[in-house]
Amino acid sequence: MSLLVLDTLTKSFGGLSAVDDLSLAVRAGEIFALIGPNGAGKSTTFNLISGLLAPDRGRIFFDGADITRTPPHSRAHLGVGRTFQLMQPFHAMTVRENVMVGELFGHTVLKSLPAARRDAEEICESVGLGHLLDRGVTALGLADLKRLEIARALATHPRLLLLDEVMAGLTPTEARQAVASIQGIRARGVTILLIDHVMSSVRDLAERVAVLNFGRKIAEGTFETVAHDPAVIEAYLGQDEADGSH
């Protein structure tokens, strides 16, 4: 059963096609990775799925329902949650308050402030931010900002979680913690679609991988199959980025 289906999705910016005729199906409960060289259209795909961009053509289905024209906040209510590659914490808010926004607005259950506060604290604990609840976001380091991105997305109680490069810039230890954390989230029944450049993490996490290049899907399958696909090697070598195993 597919939770998310992209049907011939196309989006171009001023003649340059960022996503080109992309079709994809993410099954409920799996971890699916979207990889590809820089500028391949991965982040644009995330923006299309979360509703920040409207496609020129094609449709998006979530849990069988067409959400192509659904506004972003309604998609969040349906269960589409996401993080941002460039961390975008709400300034003038503490860590706890940032997460509370998701608890208060991210789903259709109307929560009181104390309940949202308690649940936000619980989520912060679960991602390792429990000791930073009252901290302003400007005081956070990179790894904690990445955790905050995940915590905020979890606070919307997603059924599908889009993770946009949550490993980038982490130390190997932090990356391993993140992998464990993501596996823990999936174990609770959340389907995960992730973008990442850290191939070891993709290999450890993803059951299936799709490779994008110039907005087109050039390969799909297990990590092993796509890693040996000539078209994929070509795409990465062509970009002078043949370090598919760091």
């Binding site: 949650g81 709400f90 926004v101 607005f105 905020r152």
Partner: peptide, 20 residues
């Protein structure tokens, strides 16, 4: 929470479920 989130970043607020 809605007002402050919108003020900080409308797109993130929307994705987190705030009807901007």
């Amino acid at each position: 929470f809605a007002f402050t989130a919108i003020r900080a970043n409308e797109e993130v607020a929307a994705v987190m479920g705030v009807d901007v």
